[in-house]
Write a protein that binds this DNA or RNA. Structure first.
Length: 564
RNA sequence: GGCCCCGUAGCUCAGUUGGAUAGAGCGGCUGGCUUCGAACCAGUAGGUCGGGAGUUCGAAUCUCUCCGGGGUCACCA
């Protein structure tokens, strides 16, 4: 990666300057490298001289001069300038840029990949919603974020595993069971009271109806406790199937689905509880079992096993994370949670500490919740109130690509208003189409060129400013992967995607690709082919499709939309 | 009330481990299709970066304070 190369050049220059006395031998801060705000300042700029000012006790311009005098420039750099108040600016050479077209084509799908992670094993756990009802739009945000993050980390050289934790044990699962059983019995004419804390959603009736159709009234002949359990299990499986379908429709993939219940069945839960106990972090009082987290600086103790003998979600989460770190030996674990779970973070970290696992190995990404707005009014969301907008509805209305792009493009900590009516209307002006259109356009040009073989194109012919501007943008993809991976922030990618699409469209308008000039046509086709790859790779990281062609919505369908 | 997140152009949002003149999309205005896809391009208007104080050569970015919005403080998850 060119950016890394330049950082290295600077580091070497500073070291050399310190050795030959041009700079005092003081500690060097991290070398930053940015894209300058104006192209007159070149392609990359470092303010390292300004940062060294205090320690070195020299004027920043003098420091910059000393560093620049000690730079050994490779052919990728055509010019280095020192600019007030102390910036060092680097200009990429035209010939190096031209070569990058071929480098991108050679790298193919690998273009954008960097060795940052060095194969470190990282798990990304995301969505992990209760299988007690269909996913809502907030889970969609979780899925888009988690999946794109996993793709980014993979591109950044990490060994990534994506996991869904199925909360198929505990109170919520029981509530679903009781709710479905009640609806089931009601459908069959029994006078059964619906549980007060049950799930009121219409889908519960659908689940019950499906059971009646598939199994008749056989559960009514079983003891109620057994029937409830059995009905709950089947309903939960069905709900899980919905969840899998919705996520698959959003192009969200998993390597493993991990059952909470399995923690109990395998005995691991008991084992971890015992381990906590043996380390002296467990106390029993008021009939419950407590994690004495206040001993670890946490604000209060937390219940592990309730008075009724049921373990809490927190307790199983401890066992689950023990399983991740100790049994499966992930170096790092990233959990993607809704902000409403923020309270869980410090106590889980305290539990890791109690188990002698470095809490810093766990990173929890908290994303703010999604407010759904319909007809200008917020829609009250909640699985337990039964009134919420399902992810499926939005997928059907808007389609997976815009949703995915829209959800990834915002930083996790920003609260989102998702206006359903707008999203639907907006589909025509959504930025995702802009980027996809650029890709379809590259494909179209290559189709148009037909037999003209761009592989023999001579990149040295690419000298026009729009051509070079496009290449400059194309070589930035690895940097974006670095930024997104280091910051666990995939939302940068859509902005880059729009950037490169814009530069491509501009190139297209200014440079005729297929013309009478066969040699130039071949060179430009080569550039277009490389650009197509970069667009596709970027869209792939976001989880959005890169279409070979796109069809504009027909006028008649637009009229229908207007009428409705 | 304690803790966490947010407040940047009319709207939706980037930029926040301090750096050069604060950006993008949408919307507005002006211009561009006999030519490889006009779902496009070129140009233009639009800002007390919530208010105030401080640190610094330099602050949207760091500190303090105030205002506004959201979240969370369960033997739910």
């Amino acid at each position: 990666m060119i950016k890394e190369d330049i950082r290295q050049l600077l580091a070497e220059a500073i070291e050399r300057a310190q050795r030959n006395g041009a700079l005092p031998a003081v500690p060097v801060p991290e070398i930053n490298l940015d894209h300058p705000p104006d192209e007159q300042f070149g392609d990359y700029a470092s303010s390292i001289a300004l940062k060294l000012k205090r320690a070195a006790g020299m004027a920043p311009m003098a420091i910059a001069g000393a560093i620049s005098a000690n730079l050994e420039l490779p052919r990728s750099i055509s010019l280095v300038q020192v600019a007030a108040p102390g910036f060092i600016n680097f200009h990429l050479s035209t010939e190096w840029l031209q070569e990058q077209v071929e480098a991108v084509l050679r790298a193919g799908e690998q273009h954008g990949q960097i060795p940052l992670g060095k194969g470190e094993r990282v798990q990304v756990e995301f969505v992990s919603g209760n299988p007690t009802g269909p996913l809502h739009i907030g889970s969609g945000r979780n899925g888009a974020l988690g999946d794109s993050l996993a793709r980014v980390l993979r591109a950044a050289g990490y060994d990534v595993q994506r996991e869904y934790y199925i909360n198929d044990a505990g109170t919520q699962a029981e509530r679903l069971s009781a709710s479905v059983y009640a609806r089931y019995a009601q459908l069959l004419g029994r006078e059964v009271e619906f549980p007060q804390d049950g799930y009121p959603g219409e889908y519960v009736v659908d689940l019950a109806r499906a059971l009646v159709e598939a199994q008749g009234d056989r559960f009514l002949h079983l003891p109620q406790e057994e029937a409830t359990r059995e009905v709950g299990r089947l309903a939960s499986e069905r709900v899980l199937a919905w969840i899998r379908e919705d996520l698959a429709a959003m192009n969200v993939a998993y390597d493993r689905w991990f059952s909470e219940r399995s923690l109990y069945e395998s005995g691991l839960f008991t084992q971890v509880l015992q381990l906590l106990r043996s380390r002296g972090y467990v106390a029993e009082r008021e009939g419950a079992v407590w994690f004495t987290s206040s001993d670890l600086g946490h604000e209060k103790d937390e219940v592990l096993v309730r008075r009724n003998g049921q373990p809490t979600y927190f307790a199983s989460d401890i066992a689950y994370h023990y399983e991740k770190f100790v049994q499966r030996t992930f170096a790092r674990v990233i959990d993607v949670w809704g902000a409403d779970h923020q309270g869980q973070v410090p106590r889980l970290k305290a539990a890791l500490k109690a188990l002698d696992i470095d809490p810093d190995r766990l990173t929890v990404i908290l994303y703010q919740l999604v407010n759904v707005v319909r007809e200008g009014k917020p829609v009250r969301m909640g699985k337990r109130t039964g009134t919420y907008v399902t992810l499926r509805e939005v997928l059907d209305e808007v389609g997976p690509d815009p949703i995915r792009y829209f959800l990834v493009a915002r930083s996790p900590e920003a609260t989102m208003d998702f206006d359903l009516d707008l999203a639907k209307k907006q589909s025509d002006e959504n930025p995702v189409f802009y980027v996809q259109y650029a890709h379809a356009r590259t494909a179209s040009i290559l189709r148009y060129a037909g037999e003209l073989d761009y592989r023999v194109g001579d990149v040295a012919l690419l000298q026009a400013e729009p051509e070079l501007a496009l290449i400059r943008k194309m070589v930035q993809l690895p940097e974006l992967v670095e930024i997104a991976a280091q910051g666990l922030a995939p939302h940068h990618l859509p902005f880059y995607a729009q950037d490169i699409a814009r530069v491509f469209h501009s190139f297209y308008t200014q440079c005729r690709v297929v013309s009478e000039d066969v040699a130039l046509s071949r060179a430009r086709l080569k550039l277009v082919a490389a650009c197509k790859l970069v667009l596709a790779n970027t869209l792939h990281l976001i989880g959005v499709s890169a279409p070979e062609e796109m069809r504009r919505p027909t006028d008649s369908s637009a009229e229908e939309a207007d009428l409705s």
